[in-house]
Write a protein that binds this DNA or RNA. Structure first.
Lengths: 195, 195
DNA sequence: TTTTTTTGCTAACGAGCGTTAGCAAGTATA
DNA sequence: TATACTTGCTAACGCTCGTTAGCAAAAAAA
């Protein structure tokens, strides 16, 4: 039926296109008919590949959660390293995931609230656990005297905030590579602006 | 008709409730019927006070834009001060607006994309102009040797990112006052985490 | 070959959407 | 008092939504 077999499965293509649309317009403002058109199908045909609109959102959100965890664990596996170094690597890992797929990251960060229960609660728990990882690093670093901060909870929030704004301005064809960005972010967050 | 006359006008009440709903569920996922119920009216009755759903969003977004500009201008009016000090005040002013109305801030930050043209383009221009204000301060500060940063554009983005994440975690009844938060944020962003 | 699975179509379902028309009662103005 | 404005109601408009049923053709499996 298809002229050339798609390199990605239809399902993956639908997920990818949906991610882009959710990113651009938001989950609630994206219709299945829009998605179908963007993918070259009729609306009803989507349901041969996908159970529901929310299932797509679920897959994107939880898929990215897994990516973040994997990246974080790899970055902090070498526990004999100085904690500040581990933190720097965790930052770079986080930025790596964000830049690899900006649309998916953005959906992960903003559209998860359209998940219905119990998925929504599960997701929030995952996200909290991830944040706790950063918080723990900052705490350890402070205890070890490598970092200085009056309030690790606060510091973790601020740090992730800076990183998570990235999908709103990052462009893959921009002048800075993902590695540059990661490096500068880590540098600036750890050193501050003051002279 | 009403037992006790509302202290705010109905229109203001509708705007406020809509802001809370847009914040909680998002603009697209909030229905006029939901809003009507929350405000104690029937759906059709809203239109005695409000021209359209989007008009509410427009008022919230542009209203907050004005608040941000006013606060920034006041914070940086004393141009004879050191630029780093002006920047600190601008940060505190920004946090002040954010914490004064978290829901409205959140709508300002996230829901503006549901504005239709030409309002949307106007809004983006306003927002860019606001960011440019921070960028200029950082640039001046760097030129004057008060600040140190390799890339003011980048620094401005990061700085506003940290601040703008606040509405996602700030609770008015939390353990830190808005002033504490503003002060700590400014401190941390200017000084960094490293020791 | 026959059978099964996959993929896609058309048509339609019930529901909810933003919004409007027409009307009534209350309130303010004259 | 008469007049106008404000506020709210009910009912409904046209439309879009997510989703399903039923069917056909292609692809894969037997």
């Amino acid at each position: 039926m298809t002229a050339l077999p798609p390199t990605r499965s239809r399902k993956a293509q639908i997920d990818g296109t949906a991610t882009a649309l959710f990113h651009a317009r938001g989950f609630a403002a994206t219709s299945m008919r829009e998605l179908a058109t963007a993918v070259g199908l009729e609306a009803g045909s989507l349901y041969s590949h996908v159970r529901s609109k929310e299932e797509i959102l679920h897959r994107v959100c939880f898929g990215l959660a897994e990516e973040f965890f994997t990246a974080f664990d790899a970055a902090t596996a070498a526990t004999q390293q100085p904690v500040a170094q581990q933190l720097r690597q965790a930052i770079e890992a986080h930025v790596g995931v964000l830049t690899r797929d900006v649309a998916a990251s953005s959906v992960f960060l903003h559209e998860w609230r359209h998940l219905s229960e119990p998925a929504r609660t599960e997701f929030v728990a995952l996200r909290d656990r991830y944040e706790a990882g950063f918080r723990a690093l900052i705490q350890q670093g402070t205890a070890a005297g490598e970092l200085r901060c009056p309030d690790p909870v606060f510091a973790a929030l601020t740090l992730l905030a800076s990183l998570n704004w990235l999908p709103t301005w990052y462009r893959p064809d921009g002048r800075l590579s993902p590695e540059d960005i990661a490096h500068r972010l880590a540098e600036q967050l750890l050193s501050g602006l003051a002279n």
